[in-house]
Design a protein around this nucleic acid. Structure first.
Lengths: 188, 188
DNA sequence: GGTACTATCGAATGAACGTTCAATCGAGAG
DNA sequence: CTCTCGATTGAACGTTCATTCGATAGTACC
């Protein structure tokens, strides 16, 4: 019984490898099959199309990302501490999951980005609900500057993500200095 | 004589349209030719391959970007003013050149990103040299926090770019509030 | 008017790809 | 043992695409 979902997982793992190494369009199904040690047919047994296959990977990655971001007891912290905690969670996650980060970037750069449809699954995810909630209450509670949510995001999690992708081995002191800078930027 | 480079330009313009609407891989040479009102052959007359064609567009976009960023008399401003000016230049450029911005994002997301080779042209560009210089002297002059250049970039131009791509119609007050936030984040 | 060179065309080529499907396998039920 | 059904295979199919090339027309120089 484990075998069944095993293959699904193996396929998704190899897809992540291939896509980050070669990109969507240089990752033919035949190669994915070979690398995964399965036949082409079996991929179509588990996923209806290449498009859906990629969407499945997107949802999977987004879910583990949500879990990572919301880790720690952020509900019972001050806004400042929760902010910094989430920032560091993001930085650490992306640092240790460069492939996932690159995949997410590539996916979002897709012109026919099916983010909307795939995102429906994510709306129901409790971690994302939690994060959205925290940011919203902090914003309404007079702790954050009165800026658009996009701006707040780009000045916080966005920066964490992009630095994590680029940087390799940032020492603790520098990392903390950057978190503080981000907090300075968004807080009153 | 103008006709010759005209066609080159027409092809590049249509390429930008198509790529931002449909993506690299959904932009066949045949379609580009039809939309440009030329034959497929002529594209290969002006560009050796699709890859080089896209690189040519990249260089072209990067050059006008550099020009836009460095506009204004930023050499004779205080560091704070120069910073804010460049930030606003970036925001405005990307706001008015969404296609160019999207193309740049897609290009950088390319796994086999030939940024390195294409970038050789850009190293010689005076505008980029100027910008790099300004940031460096500001950093060494004790005006900016002692953070990695990547971090400074992501907290400034990076934020401007991403917000410009997403946002539509940010009022002046909000825009200025965001510049100030960025400056707060990176300055001592 | 001959020669050389550039611009232009678009049908033809050949490779690569996503997807299909008829066939095989193997486990579990009756 | 037989029947069923999901898992699995990979050759075959039809399409799409980047690229090539032989031909034609225009232009400039001698």
């Amino acid at each position: 019984m484990a075998v069944l979902s095993d293959k699904r997982e193996i396929i998704l793992e190899n897809l992540l490898d291939l896509i980050t190494e070669r990109g969507f369009h240089d990752t033919p199904m035949s190669l994915l099959a070979r690398k995964s040690g399965v036949s082409v047919g079996i991929i179509y047994h588990y996923f209806p199309s290449k498009e859906m296959l990629i969407d499945a990977l997107y949802v999977k990655v987004k879910l583990i990302l949500g879990e990572a971001l919301a880790s720690g007891d952020i509900q019972n912290m001050t806004e400042a501490d929760a902010f910094k905690r989430v920032w560091l969670n993001a930085f650490e996650f992306y640092s240790n999951h460069k492939k996932e980060a690159l995949f997410l970037e590539q996916y979002k750069a897709l012109p026919d980005c099916r983010e909307g449809e795939a995102a429906e699954f994510l709306q129901k995810d409790k971690n994302f609900a939690l994060l959205v909630n925290i940011f919203r209450t902090a914003s309404q509670g007079g702790v954050l500057k009165d800026l658009p949510m996009d701006a707040i995001y780009e000045l916080s999690i966005g920066v964490a993500m992009r630095l994590a992708i680029k940087q390799t081995g940032l020492d603790e002191a520098t990392k903390n200095a950057i978190v503080e800078s981000c907090w300075t930027a968004v807080s009153l």
